[in-house]
Computed example of a mutant assay.
Amino acid sequence: MAGHTDNAVVINAPFELVWDMTNDVPGWPKLFSEYASTEVLSEKDGAVLFRLTMHPDPQGRVWSWVSERVPDLADRVVRARRIETGAFKYMNLFWEYTEVDGGVRMRWVQDFELRAGAHTDDEGMTAHLNRATREQQARIKEIVEAAAAERVPS
């Protein structure tokens, strides 16, 4: 059985600001509370290859992996996948940005499967990712909306 998550948040900010801030991989440690650092390894043909390193988990483990993101501004989507899969057999991500009344609906879909012997199973990881995604989306909403408010002329 594979895991699947699908979460969204509406950010009350202009599309360009939401797109730019959420696709600025080097800036992710400011947006995501769980990321200690990001390192862009290469950029080629619109794809960004980068290393993410998380803050230590409650057991003191530091998780790090390489991922690839391919933003498509014309279609307002991003497709991403883990290159170094670690405990996952695969991890594919899809981000979709839709302008709605009052802002931008940012939707994240994650499809994955864990390897046998991983620290949890697909069901446990689905629950974890749903919880963490909602927390991170709420944080990103707050940060991007604050940035949008700073840009509004007085």
Results as ranks from 00 to 15, higher is better:
residue 2 A to F: 07
residue 3 G to W: 00
residue 5 T to Y: 00
residue 5 T to P: 00
residue 5 T to S: 07
residue 8 A to N: 09
residue 8 A to L: 09
residue 9 V to Y: 02
residue 9 V to E: 14
residue 17 L to N: 07
residue 19 W to Q: 06
residue 20 D to K: 15
residue 23 N to C: 10
residue 24 D to N: 15
residue 26 P to E: 12
residue 27 G to Y: 10
residue 27 G to Q: 06
residue 27 G to S: 12
residue 27 G to C: 12
residue 30 K to P: 01
residue 34 E to V: 12
residue 39 E to L: 09
residue 40 V to Y: 06
residue 41 L to E: 03
residue 42 S to A: 15
residue 43 E to Y: 04
residue 45 D to W: 00
residue 46 G to F: 03
residue 51 R to T: 03
residue 55 H to Q: 12
residue 56 P to T: 06
residue 57 D to E: 03
residue 59 Q to D: 12
residue 73 L to Q: 14
residue 77 V to K: 14
residue 84 E to I: 11
residue 85 T to K: 15
residue 87 A to F: 06
residue 97 Y to P: 03
residue 100 V to L: 02
residue 101 D to N: 13
residue 102 G to S: 09
residue 102 G to A: 05
residue 103 G to E: 06
residue 109 V to W: 00
residue 111 D to V: 02
residue 113 E to K: 00
residue 115 R to S: 10
residue 115 R to M: 13
residue 116 A to K: 00
residue 116 A to V: 00
residue 117 G to M: 00
residue 118 A to D: 01
residue 118 A to K: 01
residue 120 T to S: 12
residue 123 E to T: 12
residue 124 G to Y: 04
residue 126 T to V: 03
residue 128 H to W: 10
residue 129 L to H: 03
residue 130 N to Q: 13
residue 130 N to M: 07
residue 134 R to F: 01
residue 134 R to S: 10
residue 138 A to C: 05
residue 138 A to V: 06
residue 139 R to N: 09
residue 140 I to P: 07
residue 140 I to V: 15
residue 143 I to Y: 05
residue 143 I to R: 03
residue 146 A to Y: 05
residue 150 E to L: 14
residue 154 S to Q: 13
